[in-house]
Design a protein around this nucleic acid. Structure first.
Length: 819
RNA sequence: GCCCAGGUGGUGGAAUUGGUAGACACGCCAGACUUAGGAUCUGGUGCGGAGACGCGUGAAGGUUCAAGUCCUUUCCUGGGUACCA
């Protein structure tokens, strides 16, 4: 009578949805709110960057991070933490709007459908989220508070309106996002795109530049991400210096420089083509040339700013500035390598010590005056009482600046590259901005904020999602909605909507208190959960989302709404998952792997294990379907050792106390508990799984020898396995007769005595080469060891009777003999 | 150009942080079981060599009893960013 062979595939297929349902019903992933039972435990807030629910569903790259945080959270729950691990949807965005334009289906319907798909996929991988806290940025109950936050920003003077150039496509009659433009042409249709100033809402993130920079030091984030943000904020320290116009010395323009020490080396000046004082400088003779140049530049920047404009083009204005110290005439040029939106839009050019200035001088035949020698000391720079020759550059810079300051000609200045945040989009599918423009006033003038009671301002239905053609959002076509009367007064509603990053800039706080109708979150909730302890998401958000969120969080801090200065204490980026061909996964390459197919073939637990086993979480690595065989076989082997072909517990699983196990079995278990726990804490899931495999492989061999499987061994093993392969662990756990869930059982403790080796194998080096090995008790005395080592034949052969110069013994590591 | 990662077997990756390089897994080779195997099991597998041994962590130097790990120079790959004064 032969039993049916155990098949892990079948096993997985039979148990997965069963356990997924039980976990949901038992609410094993529920985080306790302050005051509720469970809240007395230490808290652990672990967050995944929430996805945009696209129509394509997940590919195997998406769950990589989700599986990692899921394992970490399962482990933390077992370690006795009150774990908050929520999930939600970054639901506003372009694809749903474009789909609506094509089909007329409201984006909220498309989104709702996609969310169902996503949720199903995530659940099928046993990703344990507290779905009671699910949020969607496009839900009026949620965006009510995004609008409320906007009001607060406006009230604090952090939101303002300005004319700002946007990507305008005349052929499509719409404003385009940067990623809708390819090589200066619209993605759809390939029509030309130009810059056109339009009224926009802006947020004053620049006001927080210094704090955003400073507080980076306190964060446990990848150094590369912090550096990225530092570069993005782009702090430069230097000076602002006044240069008077020769034609009218009462007028002056200011320049910013990081190198005030080179002031005496200025041989020409350059203004940006948009500089307001440009036309005060242009001479009659040069007027036509300058006009032509400015028009060309305007065109050039429209043409996607290719490398073409690195040619250091420029035109002499015909005008001169006066050197602030020597009153010498300095020719002023206009050139597009000077940008109006950085510094002051004007520079002093020092061709001797600046590469760009030097190139420009070369092209246009301008003089070069060196003011620094090879040792980095100033030369040719003394002026009246200001003696700086011979000083190192930093000292010289300081002296020159204070000299200028005393004469009222300049001062110290700090400049940032960071720009204010353009916070409006001419789109339908976004949060409506809750303001009213008084009729008669300028649109960019003061606005009336909607009352709190009138929030949320819901997106009104429209007949057509196509842009209005004027560049305004589709909302502008709703005349009845736009025209608003309040008593005597008439208003126009704002038709711009907020950008995608609005809702994602505070969602981590909403999860703490997602159903609050009175406030965005309660102070009890935030004082309990504090901040995100561990945040995982793609490196592509290194500046955008991660900078905006920090900005808003700091504003909330200033408002007394949060008590932490930073939203995300620890951050890790998961690496990109490449296709099997080592290329980025994309539909067009045809190398996309769908997790549903993999789960159907190998089971969710094999899939979870494989994704984690592939390598370090942060690393970019290629998907290899063949690699799944490994984790699949491992689970198969382990299960078969304890379950028979009918899915029942094998009779050889017996209640044998640990004291009666072979000591090796016990030792290996305790060492593995230690090792696996440490690996999880380090997020080194690949080595944790490797340790699980080793433990299983070796112990299984032992079981065949001893003819039984100790029940306690299985229980302990299942608790180690549970975070990684929860279905499998849970099923066997229940086969052992447990009525509770392994998911909430405590993480095993190890006995430090048993988790150490009694004997180790040492390598023996003679003159740096490995010449032998020896197995010795860990606590062997050095004399004893030395005698044993020197007795080894091969060692003797290499020593060859020569005297020992040195005998090095590093305990438990190595023996090194020098002759 | 600048900034940031990173180069270890045929492949994904380990390496107790200066201590036996290649754990674990894929693949491959051989064998067992089998009517059959794309199932399962056993053994082997860095390269050269019959072997003793030699050589091996992108390359070249250096420090050290000992270097994948530290230092100097250099090459390559990936990501970000770009005329930022």
């Amino acid at each position: 009578m032969s039993q049916p062979e155990f098949s892990f595939k079948e096993f997985a297929h039979n148990i997965e949805s069963k356990w997924q349902k039980i976990w949901q019903d038992k609410k094993v992933y529920k985080a306790a709110n302050p005051g509720e039972p469970g809240a007395e435990k230490p808290k652990f807030y672990c967050l995944d960057m929430f996805p945009y629910p696209s129509g394509q569903g997940l590919h195997v790259g998406h769950p990589l991070g989700y599986i990692a945080t899921d394992i970490l959270c399962r482990y933390k729950r077992m370690k006795g933490f009150n774990v908050l691990h929520p999930m939600g949807w970054d639901a506003f965005g372009l694809p749903a709007e474009q789909y609506a334009i094509q089909t007329g289906i409201h984006p909220s319907q498309t989104t709702a459908k996609n969310i169902i798909t996503y949720k199903k996929q995530l659940t099928s991988l046993a990703l344990g989220y507290d779905w009671d806290r699910e949020i969607s940025t496009a839900d009026p109950k949620y965006y009510k508070w995004t609008q409320w936050i906007f009001k607060k920003l406006y009230e604090r003077g952090l939101a303002y309106q300005a004319e700002f150039p946007v990507n305008w496509c005349p052929a499509l009659g719409t404003v385009l996002a940067n990623d809708e433009i390819i090589d200066g042409k619209s993605e759809r249709g390939g029509h030309p795109v130009e810059k056109r100033p339009m009224r926009q809402w802006m947020l004053k993130i620049t006001e927080y530049a210094e704090r955003l920079l400073e507080d980076l030091d306190s964060l446990d984030w990848p150094e590369s991400t912090k550096e990225h943000q530092r570069n993005w904020i782009g702090k430069s320290e230097g000076g602002q210096i006044k240069f008077a116009l020769q034609s009218d010395p009462k007028k002056y323009f200011e320049i910013f420089t990081t190198r005030p020490d080179t002031l005496m080396g200025v041989t020409f000046m350059v203004l940006a083509p948009e500089h307001p004082l440009l036309w005060d400088l242009v001479s009659v003779e040069q007027k036509a040339k300058v006009e032509k140049y400015c028009i060309e530049t305007a065109k050039k920047s429209d043409l996607a700013r290719t490398d073409l404009n690195k040619d250091k083009s420029g035109v002499f204005t015909g005008g001169y500035a006066l050197h602030p110290l020597t009153q010498e005439k300095i020719p002023v040029w206009v050139a597009d390598y000077v940008l109006m939106n950085y510094g002051t839009g004007a520079i002093m050019a020092v061709p001797a010590h600046d590469d760009r200035d030097q190139e420009f001088a070369k092209v246009h035949g301008l003089p070069v005056v060196p003011v620094i020698d090879e040792e980095g000391r100033l030369i040719n720079s003394d002026f009246s009482s200001m003696k700086v020759n011979g000083l190192p550059v930093t000292e010289g810079a300081q002296k020159i600046l204070s000299f200028l300051e005393s004469k009222g000609l300049g001062q110290k200045q700090i400049t940032y590259k960071l720009r204010d945040w353009v916070f409006s989009r001419q789109r339908y599918w976004g949060e409506p901005i809750p303001v009213l423009h008084p009729v008669g006033g300028a649109m960019t003038g003061d606005v009336k904020l909607l009352e709190d009671a009138d929030l949320p301002l819901e997106l009104p239905p429209v007949d057509d999602y196509k842009p209005s053609g004027s560049g305004e959002s589709p909302l502008a076509t709703l005349k009845d909605w736009v025209n608003y009367r309040e008593g005597e007064k008439s208003f126009l509603r704002e038709t711009n909507t907020m950008p995608g990053s609005a809702g994602s800039s505070w969602y981590f706080l909403r999860y703490m208190d997602p159903h609050n109708n009175e406030k965005p979150w309660s102070s009890e909730a935030v004082s309990y959960w504090q901040q995100v302890d561990f945040y995982l998401g793609g490196a592509e958000h290194a500046v955008g989302h991660l900078l905006y969120s920090r900005f808003w969080h700091k504003v909330f801090f200033d408002m007394g709404l949060v008590s932490t200065k930073e939203p995300f204490k620890r951050l890790i980026h998961q690496g990109m998952m490449l296709g099997e061909d080592n290329e980025k996964m994309s539909k067009s390459r045809g190398n996309v792997v769908n997790p549903d197919d993999v789960v159907a073939q190998y089971g969710a637990d094999s899939f979870r294990l494989y994704e984690m086993f592939m390598g370090p979480l942060e690393k970019t690595k290629p998907w290899q379907t063949g690699g799944l065989e490994g984790t699949y076989r491992y689970l198969n082997r382990f299960c078969r050792a304890v379950i028979d072909g009918e899915g029942k517990l094998q009779s050889r699983v017996e209640n044998i106390p640990e004291s009666e196990w072979p000591s090796e079995l016990s030792k290996q278990m305790h060492m593995s508990i230690k090792q696996i726990g440490e690996a999880i804490e380090k997020l080194s899931f690949n080595t944790a799984i490797s340790a699980l495999m080793v433990l299983s492989n070796e112990s299984l061999k032992e079981f065949d020898k001893i003819q039984y499987v100790p029940r306690l061994w299985v229980e302990t093993y299942l608790r180690l396995l549970a975070p990684f392969a929860p279905h499998t662990a849970e099923e066997i756990w229940s086969l052992l007769g447990h009525r509770d869930t392994v998911t909430l059982s405590p993480w095993p403790e190890y006995d430090p005595e048993k988790a150490t080796l009694d004997e180790v194998e040492l390598g023996i080096q003679v003159n740096g080469k490995l010449r032998g090995k020896i197995v010795i008790p860990v606590d062997i005395a050095e004399d004893e060891l030395k005698a044993q080592v020197l007795a080894i034949e091969n060692v003797q052969r290499w020593i060859d009777g020569k005297p020992l110069k040195k005998f090095v013994y590093v305990k438990g590591r190595i023996v090194s003999i020098v002759i």
